[in-house]
Design a protein around this nucleic acid. Structure first.
Lengths: 146, 146
DNA sequence: CTTGAAAATAGACACCA
DNA sequence: TGGTGTCTATTTTCAAG
């Protein structure tokens, strides 16, 4: 884990807001020359602080009208199988293992309710599921850099 | 909502995996020329299918060792206040409103447990909270483009 | 880290298939 | 709509201070 100074934090915040900023633009905004900014960005990438860059796609704009959070309460023995299944279902875009009664938490994006039903049913093979429809997502913030 | 063909879907998948690909590189991979690929990408951006580009930062690499999912069960009357509070807490990086008993779901990143305690306590002003520590996150997938 | 120049690349545009 | 060729603007890389 690298130690970051004030400028590194500013750079991370800028790139989390807009991942396509050039080194020159980043430098301008944090008060560094282009080579200095580029060197810092490269260091952040190589040291694993910046894992990569992603385009953010609007689910609704591609017909994914239903976003649900599915919680699964399963047994230790079936955990690996549940993970493997989730991996195979394209609608399940994100999986986290958590503490508590529900051991797995899935983000599911579907075009229609019947499809969500299929996904939930297949996950329910491994234990009781709780499904919550997402009514609204609030714009995510950049990570707080301590 | 635009209708997307096979090539648009391929472009979205590529850019979700690597948001810094150039128009020429995208074109190469989907079998289009640079101008044709650039035109499609621009169309996807302007039509709102691509919302933007983000750098992905590793929370652990910046000292955010604790990732928790906090569920809050609050009343309709206090919902707005809870949202306003969550907005003000930097550790709360993502908020969704969902159906079900717990109306709000937060992603919280903290440097240490005591800080998480503070965050949970302040959210608990608005109702009972359930906190789950994230033990492991599995790499998110690109959205399925139907 | 800065400045300054060079090399590489990406983006934009006109024109044609 | 897409392909080719070209031109310009930007970016990145590398020198040297």
């Amino acid at each position: 884990m690298e130690s970051l100074d004030e400028i590194d934090r500013a750079i991370l915040e800028l790139l989390q807001a807009d991942g396509r900023l050039s080194g020159a633009e980043v430098g301008r905004r944090v008060g560094l020359s282009q080579p200095a900014a580029a060197a810092r960005i490269q260091r952040l990438e190589k040291s694993g602080v910046i894992l990569g860059y992603r385009a953010v796609v609007d689910p609704a704009a591609v017909g994914l009208n239903i976003h649900a959070v599915v919680r699964l309460r399963t047994t230790h023995a079936q955990l690996a199988k549940a993970l493997a299944l989730a991996e195979r279902i394209p609608d399940v875009v994100s999986t986290v293992r958590v503490t508590g009664e529900d051991c797995l938490l899935f983000d599911v994006h579907c075009t229609h309710a019947e499809r969500l039903e299929q996904v939930v049913d297949s996950l329910a093979r491994f234990g009781p599921v709780t499904t919550s429809l997402v009514l609204r997502s609030y714009p995510p913030k950049p990570l707080p850099t301590p």
